[in-house]
Simulated assay, not measured.
Amino acid sequence: MSRYGQLAIAESNIKSITDRIGDLLQVVSLSLGDFFSGTGVVVVEDDYDIPHQVMVDTPVQWFHDSTLKTLKSICTVYSPYHDGFHLLDAELNPIAFCTFLAPKIVGDATFLGALKKNDGSRAYTALFSSAMPGVICTATASRGEQVRLFVNGAEKTWPL
């Protein structure tokens, strides 16, 4: 059981999911190079409970293409869709793209210790979202920086 709620996904499966999402975002970031705009994703169970709002209609084709192909087209500085977080299921299939998240603010100073002094909205949203019911993990990637993963507020990074 996690500090902030029970996850139905076994711990060994969480490791597999976090490894896969870390690798996925690393590939997206490295393949786009200087054109990478950064991104955030939330991997959820079927019964997730995170308030969110899709900010813009997205192409239906994205739900049929691979997640890698779609994220590569979204996460470029030339894409009008690069804002917001993208919701994925435990198989890393898309649920929603370009969403505004409104997670509950939880935790204490220890929990917030996962953040760095100059972290912005994307990191705070990822941290707090990682503690919401039904959220397996969250991940962020910024141009030229490490991929950051959060599971119940604990952070893991993938160097670029």
Rank of each mutant, 00 (worst) to 15 (best):
D119T: 03
G33I: 09
T70I: 06
M132C: 14
R148H: 12
S37W: 07
K117M: 05
D57H: 08
M132Q: 15
Y124I: 08
H82W: 07
I95D: 04
V54A: 15
L87M: 13
F111N: 03
T67C: 07
K116R: 13
Y81V: 00
T110L: 11
E155Y: 01
I136N: 04
V60L: 08
P51I: 05
G38D: 10
D57M: 04
R3S: 12
I74V: 13
S79Y: 01
L149R: 00
G22V: 12
G5Q: 08
A139D: 03
I9Y: 02
G5D: 08
S130C: 09
A154C: 05
V28H: 08
W158I: 15
Y124N: 09
I95K: 14
T125G: 03
E145G: 10
A123W: 00
T125N: 14
L68E: 13
L68S: 05
N93M: 09
G113V: 02
H82E: 04
A90M: 10
L68C: 04
G84M: 01
K156P: 03
F111S: 09
H86K: 10
G153E: 12
P51T: 09
Q6A: 10
S66C: 05
I9D: 01
A10I: 02
A154W: 04
T125Q: 10
I74A: 03
G40I: 00
T70C: 08
V135I: 14
E45S: 07
C75I: 00
H86E: 09
R148S: 14
D57E: 15
K156N: 08
G113R: 05
H86G: 05
D34S: 15
L127I: 02
D108M: 06
L127F: 09
C137H: 03
Y81W: 14
S37Q: 10
H52G: 03
S66L: 03
D46E: 15
Y4A: 00
D65C: 07
L25D: 11
N118E: 14
S29I: 07
G107W: 06
A139P: 02
T157C: 12
L88W: 11
L68I: 07
P159I: 06
T140M: 05
K72S: 14
P133F: 07
A8T: 13
L87E: 07
T140N: 04
W62K: 07
E155C: 12
N152P: 01
V106P: 01
